[in-house]
Simulated assay, not measured.
Amino acid sequence: MTKILLIVHVLAAIIAVGPVTVAASMFPAAARQVLADPADERARAVLRNLHRVCRVYALVGVTVPVFGIATANSLHALGDTWLIVSMVLTAIAAAVLAALVLPRQSAVLEGPAEIADTKRLAMYTGIFNLLWAIVTVLMIVRPGSTTSV
């Protein structure tokens, strides 16, 4: 059962978190393109689609920690420091996405945005992506575990 939980956890991370990180990273540049030419309907459609990808896959991404916790529980690793740090960083990444990235994307779509808004959005997106990169490294290296390098 542990292997199945781990497989679902890793697949969910790849399928859900991957698209969010890519779409969120593309959004600020696409927003600047819309700012440069507000009449460009194709650029505006791209922006809406990137935001939709971020919203939908963020919801699907909830499965990642759910199956991660189930996997850790089956491995009796819930008390391991690397896992606790990973869970905290995952919660922070989710908060950054929900409180900073997605609302600012919506604001850019809804009203007049400025270049400063896209720069701030890019910064928050970078923080979100960095947090996920750190969690990924922790999941692979697992400091203090018997299988870490």
Rank of each mutant, 00 (worst) to 15 (best):
V8F: 13
V8G: 13
H9T: 10
V10P: 10
V10T: 05
L11F: 07
L11G: 08
L11M: 09
A12L: 12
A12G: 15
A12D: 11
A13E: 04
A13P: 05
A13H: 06
I15G: 08
I15L: 15
I15C: 07
A16W: 01
A16Y: 01
A16N: 00
V17R: 03
V17H: 02
V17I: 15
G18L: 11
G18Y: 08
P19A: 01
V20T: 08
T21N: 06
A23C: 06
A23L: 08
S25E: 02
S25W: 10
S25V: 02
S25F: 10
M26L: 13
M26N: 05
F27C: 06
F27T: 00
F27A: 04
P28Q: 03
P28K: 02
P28S: 02
A29I: 02
A30V: 11
A30E: 13
A30S: 15
A31R: 03
A31C: 04
A31P: 04
A31Y: 03
A31S: 04
R32P: 03
Q33R: 15
Q33N: 14
Q33S: 14
V34S: 00
V34A: 00
L35F: 05
L35T: 07
A36P: 02
A36W: 01
D37P: 00
P38N: 12
A39H: 12
D40P: 12
E41G: 13
R42G: 11
R42Y: 06
A43K: 13
A43Q: 11
A43R: 12
R44F: 12
R44I: 08
A45F: 11
A45T: 15
A45G: 10
A45S: 15
V46G: 06
L47H: 07
L47Y: 07
R48F: 06
R48C: 05
R48N: 09
R48L: 09
R48A: 11
N49A: 13
N49F: 14
N49Q: 14
N49I: 04
N49S: 14
N49L: 12
N49T: 10
N49C: 07
L50H: 04
L50P: 03
L50G: 03
L50F: 04
H51G: 11
H51Q: 11
R52G: 03
V53C: 03
V53N: 05
C54V: 11
R55T: 03
